[in-house]
Design a binder for these strands. Structure first.
Lengths: 250, 250
DNA sequence: TCCACAATCAATCATAATCGTTCATAAGCA
DNA sequence: TGCTTATGAACGATTATGATTGATTGTGGA
């Protein structure tokens, strides 16, 4: 069996089953463990897969380590639901700002075939957007290791060259008195500016963010339309004058 | 069996089975191994197939896109060697520009603990740099899907805010008359500007780039110091007036 | 929690397969 | 005959492979 054949075989199996085990490959190809190991190393080098203990998985899936992958599974269904609704607010040909974050990330699959121009400050987002074939600009700037978000003066300056039809922000808390908040002032500044540059801004959050006050203020509630899955009565009461879209999670 | 017949036979078999092995061809045609080898070499020359170790495969729709995977493994040892040497040219505390590319990518492991500020326009590089804990700015801009490089006016403008002590460029060809070249004019523009912003520029290339002329010109040879592993005498003769550092691959 | 055991890993080495090159021979052609 | 081209064999060089080793990592029980 040729090296390329094995490589193709491994990738085929991987595509089909999402994961492959080394032992499984040794048996099915007849090659030695060492060879399979080398194959996996090579394929990882070329970004075709990602090695894990005992085998390999498709790449990119858990690229952004626990900091994000943990968060992204929490309320994942809700986030997808929110994202799906949010995507319906985008018109064909719009220019869109997508904030770095796990909720906005879920928007990407729904944006295909809308002929958009997307600007983002999220590293993981630009990769996913490219996979979908969407024209994407990354703001650039200083990268925050844990979240993969770009921030700082570079980012701020780069943003000012753009104007958006729609701006989607991920937020960490919303509160009737304190507005939208997020833990990092640097990221808050980026969100703030992006919103100013957009005709319409939407803040995306699941219900766990209700009445929560994170460290840095982004803006008042009435500066953006909140899209949230469900909120308690008390939270609702405080917010009732503001613009809210409630998405019911099925 | 005539040469043309064998050629046709090989291509037919290849079309049918996607891959052919040399031994297999030796047996089925009765020709010697040398002859089959020559056949494959000829057919590769005329782009009818692509040789791999032990046989040949169909060209183009190569399961492993050569765009990234092949390039990054081709001359890998040389690239690492070149990168190691290049890293010795960086001083503690320098500000560095790292061009997007596979050779510059190999530099990253050697830059640890040098307390640098690195600016890059390469997506894959920013990830690797972050893993090494190096302070990194990404230029941002429009992302080119195949290479992961950011280019365009956004990138150009973002770059202008920086000045570098050292600038490392990956190049696709160098030639005494035509200078440094690369296939993409957009990327050429970025390389060009980065070099202007740096006190010292180094062009990194393995010997396969010698005397090659890629599409877009970056600059003349004397505008950057060339770091290359080995070059033929003829290539060397044409270059001898310029600044070249030759790295011997062990 | 800690420890021990099993599985997996990276690194190394020797071997086998394959490669490019060279040279000599054979075949085709004027 | 003299010339070119195709072929096959032989060689050392390169590359892929498989087995081995000691280190690392995950797992399950005390």
């Amino acid at each position: 069996m040729l090296t390329n054949e094995r490589h193709a075989y491994i990738l085929g199996l991987l595509e089909e089953k999402q994961t492959v085990k080394i032992q499984e490959l040794v048996e099915s190809t007849g090659a030695s463990e060492s060879t399979i190991r080398r194959d996996l190393t090579d394929l990882e080098q070329s970004q075709k897969l990602e090695r894990v203990f005992g085998g390999a998985i498709l790449p990119g899936r858990n690229l952004m380590e626990p900091s994000i992958s943990d968060k992204s599974t929490r309320f994942l269904k809700e986030k997808i639901r929110i994202a799906e609704y949010a995507s319906s607010l985008v018109q064909q040909g719009d220019s869109v700002f997508l904030d770095a974050g796990t909720t906005t990330f879920q928007l990407i699959p729904f944006l295909k075939d809308k002929d958009l121009v997307v600007v983002t400050n999220g590293l993981t987002l630009v990769e996913a957007l490219n996979e979908q074939g969407i024209t994407t600009y990354l703001t650039g700037g200083l990268m925050k290791p844990r979240t993969g978000a770009f921030v700082g003066s570079h980012t701020i300056q780069a943003l000012q060259n753009y104007r958006f039809d729609v701006c989607f922000l991920g937020i960490n808390g919303f509160h009737p008195d304190y507005g939208y908040t997020t833990p990092d002032p640097e990221e808050a500044a980026v969100k703030q500016l992006a919103s100013l540059l957009a005709r319409k801004t939407y803040a995306l959050a699941d219900h766990s963010k209700a009445n929560k006050i994170s460290f840095a203020k982004i803006m008042d509630l009435d500066r953006a339309t909140l899209i949230v899955d469900e909120i308690t009565k008390e939270a609702n009461a405080g917010l009732q004058k503001k613009t809210i879209v409630k998405v019911v999670t099925p």
